[in-house]
Design a protein around this nucleic acid. Structure first.
Lengths: 230, 230
DNA sequence: AGGTGGTGTCACGGAACTGTAACAATCGAC
DNA sequence: GTCGATTGTTACAGTTCCGTGACACCACCT
């Protein structure tokens, strides 16, 4: 899961330093010096979060933040305001422009990273409160628990995701590549044969409850989770 | 049904801004600069909720909150404490004093409104009594006390809040990040692994009463407080 | 000042998980 | 039936994840 940060900071030395720091932690950083450039990146790159300097030449960061948050199409991108001044008035004004967090220079790298993670964590994840039931197999997503015939069954994370995907997409054939995309996530590079092994592991578990036939092989294409027998 | 907010904040600019913000959302706001004025409003207006600045001239917000919560006739009015960043560490004390929630400047308007609604919803719900009981474990919320098998057990504030959260949200998996949000509060930036340590401490206490299995690890996702065994 | 309890962080080690290779079994076309 | 292609199965090593104890720091109390 790639996280793209749009870093808006006019002072080149600071910008570069921050970019380096953030890339080192694993983020993908696009650094720009002003709001004009930032707006272009916004459309092209769809950043996950914006790190925005308070003071900027031309349109200030605060002002841009306010506009962003008013704009329906961008208001859900979290913004962290970065301020040089550490004084009261900033905090006060920080309130009403809709920034999701606020950090004052000087700050420690650790604090910055932690705050970015916290903001991202918060803005993501509307709570998942579903419950899938098929053939006596009950997957309750919020409890993260699998029950077959009223018996609790332990699953490894991958097995769980694989089964979840199958149960939400029954009776349809998926190639190994598609399964990798959906269960492992797009940007992973894994041997397709690995899917076979996980299918095997899942089957082994289902076999304990005479549900082996649910996961079917479609030779030459992939696998299918079939509710109607055969 | 109109919701009346009593806003206690000494700094006029902040007070006005908050008042405007809240009125815009549809609340009725009465803003006052200190505790003396606040007490008068309390009697005249019967506010639905109090938004209380931490630092106030004369009697501090914290102190007043403590008194309010001791006073039977007012203890059921919910209080949200508002604190400047520098006082962030005092969060624990804030909740110990009986405040229903706590929010740090700077915060987004969205967050503030969300918290007000959440607190109101919570205090309106009749199910939120001052007592939670599960499996022989009794949390008396008003006393901040824990009893297991009729034995009083000492808990640190964090342990208490963690257990309280678990007991009010049983059988559901929470990631470390979600636990940080709910138990430590948003606007904290703490290492996620710290959650592990507190889980460990809580388990250690529960183990003294053969309740270890209540707190379960869900590998790759988080933790769960499970009432149904296994 | 010194003591105490609470808290966040770190480092270490062990356990669980997972990808891969290697081999066995099966299928389908001829 | 034979043969190549495809899939099933197993073992194993590398990696990730989690539990645990230790420790430093801070607020508070005496």
């Amino acid at each position: 899961m790639d996280i793209k940060i749009l870093l808006v900071e006019d002072e080149p030395s600071i910008r570069d330093m921050l970019a380096m720091l953030l890339e080192q932690v694993g983020f993908i950083v696009q650094g720009v010096p002003d709001v004009q450039m930032a707006e272009r990146c916004l459309k092209d790159n769809a950043p996950s979060i914006i790190l925005l300097d308070w003071m900027l030449p031309g349109i200030s960061g605060v002002e841009w933040c306010r506009r962003l948050k008013r704009d329906k199409s961008y208001s859900d991108i979290p913004v962290i305001l970065v301020s040089a001044r550490s004084e009261e008035e900033d905090k006060v004004r920080g309130l009403d422009v809709g920034a999701d967090d606020y950090i004052c220079k000087p700050f420690s790298p650790k604090e910055l990273v932690a705050r970015i993670r916290a903001v991202l964590r918060r803005s993501a994840a509307p709570e998942n409160t579903e419950r899938i039931e098929q053939k006596g197999i009950v997957l309750s997503l919020d409890e993260h628990r699998l029950k077959i015939d009223d018996t609790v069954v332990a699953l490894s994370p991958t097995e769980y995701r694989l089964l979840e995907f199958f149960m939400t997409h029954p009776d349809k054939v998926y190639s190994r590549g598609q399964l990798l995309d959906h269960v492992w996530g797009r940007s992973t590079y894994i041997e397709e044969r690995t899917v076979d092994v996980h299918i095997r592991r899942l089957r082994k578990i289902l076999a304990r409850f005479q549900r082996e036939e649910l996961v079917q092989t479609v030779r030459g294409f992939g696998y299918r989770f079939s509710l109607q027998g055969e």
